[in-house]
Design a protein around this nucleic acid. Structure first.
Lengths: 147, 147
DNA sequence: TTTGTTGTAACCATTGACATTATAACATGA
DNA sequence: TCATGTTATAATGTCAATGGTTACAACAAA
């Protein structure tokens, strides 16, 4: 199991928007070129980010704008916008365990809290990183390239 | 994206083995009945747990034994045995970003450490729970049933 | 040698990820 | 208004993973 590439693609998009926003129009075609995928893939992800209220996208003219400060958008916000997790549960149970078995009828009560804690540990760590970290991070990497 | 039900099935199996080990022979058929799935699904998971060195399975006669103490098997051990995570990376990148784009050629350097930290947060929390916790947990729940 | 069990191969159905093409909707500048 | 560039979305396709099922070989013990 892996978290889909859509999540890292979304972070890639945000980084490109920030890096190139003053140099050129950042279109889905341009982004597709940087990420090496199809523009439609990009647009679907943009739609998800738009539905989550993180960005606005200009239709005819093209161009992406953030609705919040970089420091107000965490990795978790992006993850939540992108990953369609059923009921918000990271862990999946097999349907309908046997209610006549003492273990079967108690398996959810037994595991739910512990699994939630594990999920929360991941999500809390995601909340520690913001898009502002990406701005400074990519600036450092680009500066290092020209040394 | 969700972590497959094989993981919670494996925890279910361990719980059943512990609860029923003195009362009856715990076979893949019995386990399939408690979990409400097919015995072959159970056997495949048992094979993974066996390959990870967590259990031994008696072939002709049936029966499952742990190779370690309950307190020495963490949720992470089970997760690692069950989930085939490519390269051990939880997060998936799109293949071959454009090396001619300053962002494309730096995206891994930009994200890798942060994503690893998120993954580690989840795995560290998984290491905090052992099968011994499940023994006491299920005992409490069963005691509560008879009140 | 019979019986009960595990190990595994060979399928099948369903779903999700990712890709691709085509076309409609829309905004802007000429 | 119209041409142009762009986004939005539907329709399709491919591929891999999940979960299920049947069948049968391998094996251990009574």
């Amino acid at each position: 199991m892996q978290i889909s590439s859509r999540f890292t693609i979304a972070l890639h998009i945000f980084t490109c928007v920030d890096v190139f926003k003053d140099q050129r129009k950042v279109t889905s075609d341009f982004l597709a070129g940087s990420i090496n995928t199809n523009p439609v893939i990009i647009r679907k992800i943009l739609t998800q980010l738009k539905n989550a209220g993180l960005i606005t996208v200009a239709r005819g003219t093209g161009g992406i704008s953030l609705t919040k400060e970089l420091s107000d958008i965490t990795f978790y916000d992006v993850y939540e916008a992108i990953e369609p997790v059923e009921n918000g549960d990271l862990f999946h149970f097999h349907e309908s365990p046997n209610p006549e078995c003492p273990v079967g009828r108690n398996i959810h009560a037994l595991l739910d809290d512990r699994l939630k804690a594990i999920q929360r540990a991941m999500e809390d760590e995601m909340k520690r990183y913001t898009l502002l970290d990406l701005r400074s991070g990519i600036a450092d990497l680009l500066a290092k390239e020209t040394e």
